[in-house]
Amino acid sequence: MSALRGRFNSAAGFLDLARRAWRRSTRFRAGSLLVAAMVAMAVLGPYVAPYPSDGWGLVPRNAAERAGKPPCPEFPFGTDNLGRDVLSRVLVGARLALLQIALVVSVSLALGLFVGVCAAYYRGPVEALLNYAAEVFLALPAMVIALALRLALGQGFHVVVTSLILSWWPWYARSSYVYARAVVEMEYVLLARLAGVPDRTVLLRHVVVNVLPPVLVQAITDLGSVLLEASAINFLGLGLPPDAPDWGIVVQNGFKYIVSMPWVSMFPGAFILATALGFSLVGDSLREEMDPKMRRRWKLWF
């Protein structure tokens, strides 16, 4: 089973993979630094923000004289139309960004893995049904699901997260299904089943363990994509309410003033870009590291 060679199937294996990637790939190092910075911001943001209450979206007392200031030493990222410090809003917003993407990816991964592995293992009608459900949600981008949920449930955190989970789980279901099919057809799995090992044990010990690693690496890349979609949903006002400390929301706050105070939107947007890029760099290099074909040293032979 050459497709599965070079994969890790334990935490130690994963660390080993990461270490190798760190040694070999500049892009992995750059990506890890970006991700680390993002996580640090999420943890420390509210404590290091120069104006924490601005960061939470509260309008300062002297709003009238502080409104619409371009970047300056006192406000490195400038202030918005209600006089709030944009740097503080960006710093505090990191936490919600991380929370959204972590929640979405972990739940979709768990759901998708479960569905994909079950479909591959049980086959028959279960397989058909699960594949069908996955196909239906693949056809619906998160944005339009968010539209539906926005109409049905109103604004809120739950709308962003639910719509993203609904549109992301099929990807994991599909790739786990493909990998799981390969594993299930292996002889030792068949033998284990024939030997009367309970389904649950076979699934956990053989199938999931082998399917998880590639899907997990995919998930790291997806953290960035999910952040992009979540920000877009929040930007359009389909998700979080307009006073939430979220990057997409801050970009939206600055939208009307894009010409007169571009800094309000540009800074938080740049942070979305940097974070998404960080996750993509990490995920991409890990995938290269895992796939031996891609790891080969290129020889320019012509």
Binding site: A63, P241, P242, D243
Partner: peptide, 21 residues
């Protein structure tokens, strides 16, 4: 803008305003 302002000022009275645009 008014809603955000109101929310910020009522916070001083320890009253939480849930904004529902």
């Amino acid at each position: 803008a008014f809603a955000q302002l109101l929310k910020s000022r009522l916070a001083e009275l320890n009253i939480t305003v849930v904004l529902k645009p």
